[in-house]
Design a protein around this nucleic acid. Structure first.
Length: 311
RNA sequence: GCCGAGGUAGCUCAGUGGUAGAGCGCGGCCCUGAAAAGGCCGGCGUGGGGGGUCCGAUUCCCUCCCUCGGCA
């Protein structure tokens, strides 16, 4: 019998953290975070990490594992997460992967094509070529070396065009060739994916509440402290941090940054939902206004026990 | 009460006698080493209400309502 891994996902501010806590207690799980920003130390308020109280009474893995000045990406995450998941299973517990990063989830479940890390130098060179020789140049080049990938990538999507070219130049084979070869956890484990869902207006109200709370908890001081030091490119893209930088630089007033953060969080939540909707393996858990995290966890427990869905 | 300005998308506003746009917002989508990132698509509308002129009114005229300034 294959061991089971449970994913609890959902848009930001949908209540994953608390729900996961109660669910973990019920199913004898340890939590493995599935989040690209909570890995960073000292970004606590900014990323709404689970409280110390929660973390003290239940193991939460992959939170606070990277210093703020280090770059981080999907493959780092995958390496660390797979290791943790195996450890948890070895202890006889259930890994409960909790987070909102759709790509991170997919990379765990479905795999990644390995051995082609980013090459910043090459990227810079390609980027500059694109600047000098016009926007269509890089895309044209991609069409030559990898027509299949070019078909999938929009001509304006510089980031993906450059990545595809990068892979081609480093490995000598097109990225579309590698993308077909991925093996993930789904081969070896039973996977259940639960996604928290609530009416959009309620979710947005929740987001607004959370952002206001961040301000009263001291997000400004935290951001100020972080921006004083050397900070990696990846960490600097956290919602809240980039907006507050604008506030410190005098670009926005206090109420404008607040709004900006709320809005960018909404857009982020919308993108997350698009990602999850596409994944047909997901089992949706609708959350209503009056539901407490404990009750939602109870409902999920019922779903998990009720029928063993194979993935 | 009088004078002036104005009521067009969720918001701020353009424009035209042939049933309307822009920015922001909002919605949908894509995604394999920056993913809290990056990219694509979509106008979502009782043109304040009512009447009139006209083949045809959001546009011109009348009237009422509302908002904002000034004078009382």
């Amino acid at each position: 019998m294959k061991k089971e891994i449970v994913f609890l996902v959902g848009p930001t501010a949908s209540g994953k953290t608390e729900t996961a806590f109660f669910l973990a207690k019920k199913i004898n799980a340890e939590i493995v975070s599935c989040d690209s920003m909570q890995v960073y130390r000292r970004m606590d308020i900014l990323t709404s990490k689970p409280s110390l109280l929660l973390r003290d009474s239940l193991p939460h893995h992959l939170i606070n594992v990277v210093p703020i000045d280090k770059e981080y990406d999907v493959s780092c995450y995958r390496r660390q997460a797979v290791k943790k998941i195996k450890e948890v299973i070895k202890k006889g517990k259930v890994p409960l992967c909790v987070g909102g990063a759709g790509l991170y989830m997919s990379i765990l479940i479905d795999g990644i094509f390995p051995h082609c890390p980013a090459d910043e130098g090459l990227r810079k060179r390609l980027y500059r070529q694109g600047q000098v020789r016009g926007s269509g140049y890089l895309y044209g080049k991609l069409k030559e070396v990898d027509p299949e990938a070019a078909l999938k990538i929009h001509p304006h999507d510089k980031r993906r065009i450059i990545r595809a070219l990068e892979v081609f130049f480093i490995k000598g084979k097109p990225i579309s060739y590698f993308q077909k070869r991925r093996r993930g956890l789904a081969d070896k484990y039973r996977i259940r994916i639960l996604c928290l869902d609530m009416p959009r207006s309620e979710l947005y109200a929740q987001i607004n509440r959370r952002v206001n709370e961040m301000f009263s908890r001291g997000i400004i001081a935290e951001a100020e402290m972080l921006l004083e030091q050397k900070i990696s490119k990846t960490a600097s893209y956290a919602i809240g941090l980039k907006e507050l930088k604008g506030y410190f630089d005098g670009m926005y007033s206090l109420s404008e940054v607040k709004e900006k953060i709320k809005q960018n969080t909404r857009l982020y939540a919308k993108r997350q939902l698009t990602w999850f909707r596409k994944d047909k393996r997901i089992e949706w858990v609708s959350v209503k206004g009056k539901d407490t995290p404990r009750r939602v966890a109870g409902r999920i427990y019922g779903m998990l026990m009720g029928h063993k869905q194979k993935v």
